[in-house]
């Protein structure tokens, strides 16, 4: 399956996956085009029976980026895999607001959003998984992990579950932390300069999201962009 690349979108994007359809999108916000100014993107996504969608979001540059995702799983056995990275520093603000609704039984969803925040950057993650009363045998997972790279960086996280069915597997988790000093020291003791050691750790943190990109060429390209951006991140 070909990975569709969407660069610096704005406004409202509607995606309706018909029964049995599958698609993979890579959304890149690199601080140019629409992402160069305050920018809000609203995604309205629906999946019919047996449809499968993967979306990887890379928010690497911009001033104020707000991404609003509304995902509705409307047919049985629909599967949705969402993942994203925000790299924010300076005075940048990056928000992800995700509402993912399981409308019918037997659907699966995963969310993995990771942020690295430096300078006076701010990230916000608000994620809600909603499981309606009929949506039995739902599997839904959500994680948001934040790495603070400066004393003035801020990461807000609000993971939420609203479950009205009783036969479901759902979990959510959120962390906010700093680079592990033991790991840093270990790398430095082998001669890796501090800045490079931090970069290796931050790349490792990002890798879980990057490896979801199915196309090796795009994945390598995106990894290079992330690395380049991390080198600038103060």
């Amino acid at each position: 399956m070909e990975v569709q690349l969407i660069t610096n979108p704005e406004g409202r994007l509607q995606m309706a996956l018909e029964a049995g359809a599958s698609a993979e999108y890579l959304v890149l916000q690199d601080g140019t085009g629409a992402a160069a100014r305050e920018c809000e993107v609203a995604y309205a996504i629906s999946l019919a029976e047996g449809a499968s969608l993967k979306m990887v979001f890379l928010s690497l540059g911009g001033t104020v980026l707000r991404n609003r995702l509304r995902v509705s799983l409307q047919g049985r056995h629909a599967a949705c895999d969402l993942a994203g990275i925000c790299l924010a520093d300076g005075r940048q603000e990056m928000d992800y607001d995700v509402l993912l609704t399981h409308e019918v039984p037997q659907c699966a969803s995963t969310q993995l959003f990771k942020n690295i925040v430096g300078g006076h950057g701010v990230t916000r993650f608000h994620g809600l998984i909603k499981v309606v009363p009929d949506a039995q045998q739902t599997e839904a997972y959500q994680a948001n992990h934040n790495l603070l790279a400066s004393d003035t960086a801020k990461a807000y996280t609000q993971p939420q579950l609203e479950i009205y069915a009783d036969d479901v597997k759902c979990s959510h988790g959120a962390t906010i932390g700093r680079l592990n000093p033991d790991e840093l020291f270990y790398m430095r003791s082998r001669g890796i300069p501090q800045a490079e050691a931090r970069l290796l750790q931050q790349l490792a943190f990002s890798y879980e999201v990057l490896e979801k990109i199915s196309s090796p060429e795009l994945r390598e390209k995106m990894q290079a962009l992330v690395e380049q951006r991390l080198r600038e991140l103060a």
Partner: peptide, 28 residues
């Protein structure tokens, strides 16, 4: 600094080596 000591040829074998998830041995 720790890295400068390493460049000067000092190596410490750790009693409790540190795990670094996500950084492969080869890249390290």
């Amino acid at each position: 600094s720790p890295e400068e000591r390493s460049w000067a040829g000092v190596f410490l074998g750790f009693q409790y080596p540190v795990e670094i998830p996500g950084v492969s041995n080869v890249n390290f």
